[in-house]
Nucleic acid binder design. Sequence first.
DNA 1: CAGAAGAATATGTGCATACATAATCATGGG
DNA 2: CCCATGATTATGTATGCACATATTCTTCTG
Lengths: 230, 230
Amino acid sequence: MSRRGWQEVQDELIGRINDGAWPPGTLLPAETALAVELGVARTTVNRALRGLAESGLVDRKRKAGTVVAEHPPARAVLTIPVIRKEVEGQGKTWRHHLLLREAAPAPAPISARLHLPARAPMLHLVALHLADKRPFLLEDRWLNLAALPEAEDVDFHATSPNEWLLAHVPYTTGDLSISAEPAGEDTADLLAAPEGAALLTLDRATWNDGRAITAVRLTYAPGYKMRAAL
Amino acid sequence: MSRRGWQEVQDELIGRINDGAWPPGTLLPAETALAVELGVARTTVNRALRGLAESGLVDRKRKAGTVVAEHPPARAVLTIPVIRKEVEGQGKTWRHHLLLREAAPAPAPISARLHLPARAPMLHLVALHLADKRPFLLEDRWLNLAALPEAEDVDFHATSPNEWLLAHVPYTTGDLSISAEPAGEDTADLLAAPEGAALLTLDRATWNDGRAITAVRLTYAPGYKMRAAL
DNA sequence: CAGAAGAATATGTGCATACATAATCATGGG
DNA sequence: CCCATGATTATGTATGCACATATTCTTCTG
């Protein structure tokens, strides 16, 4: 029945879950048993099950075995590209204006979010990104100078903060919060939106190897949609 | 230097990318070479590299080799739980009201989004979800009756459409679009928000094994923030 | 009978090997 | 010189084996 690969095995298992043969809560056979039944090596079954566990369809615990999840959460992978790439991907011309560049101690909400001591020395950058000369998004960023002293000497007119960071600290972890916010007076003005307009807003904090790097708020112009694959 | 496992190998590789030893665009050594250098089996290097490829840090192609990505996009994993679970996770009481239940042909935008013929027979459901008796989110759903004829006989007063679907078709694929929308008159009323308020809105289309299942729009009450891990 | 010590077991991972597959690269014919 | 074709090569994956590790289950002891 099997012949080809772990994908085939995975499809078979998904099928059994979806058609009700293994309803939520079912303890399913051990890897070794499945391997024998499907005529493949245990490694192959393991690969298939690992995938299902990653996507949340099953829960696995050593010795306890593999159980079909009761409430499999939907997982969507958001891909947040470099801003320039995103604009150019729409066939538009990208530009950016640096509106503010100021070394300043971190205000309380920022230092708290990054788990830094109050008033840690930071670089505050505000940049407006344009697509075909129309406002696209506002980048309001606080950069931790202790982690990135080089930033002090960078010309952010030439390279956007967004892009400079990615080139310098490509691999980061962090968290993200997505919300809809009404446009404040200044923001409305910069994004050419009516005051109070609904704006998609991303708040992001970034660490690298345990060191706080940056906190940023991205405010998109009205009408922007973020897409993700499930 | 190595000793334990693919994670250690992965950390080592991430380190070399992050500290500039392998800048973006670099073609890195073949798996076999890395395996020898790090004193592990190729399988282990492969595991580490596969992880990096999944998170977008490197691009891999057969024969061509592994290249450090030029613009590693940030990837965030959004976990969208069952609505009831989410509300209860905040320590609040969940309830829902079914506001509309109507069999009707799909309007054009819905059938287009699901790649179905125009006016395909569907079930239109609107439900308001409450957290501690306060409006939490509005669920506006179109269900493909051809794929799920059982839905015709379900009492959606007892089980929310959201939850019924998850129990019936646990594993689905689809796409998701996230935006900020101003509250329309009806929506504002139902969510107890001022008209024009900024509301986080999710639009989702769902397939199972190539068959269109449902299209849904979730409109959250003001102030809602969606969180994700990077 | 409670609680600690130990056996049993399912998953997690590493390794060596083999073959599959997709690109690329080199080669030779027109 | 161009292009088709086949050789080369890096990744992709399967397999059998071994051992690690986290739990659970069992049993022994006070």
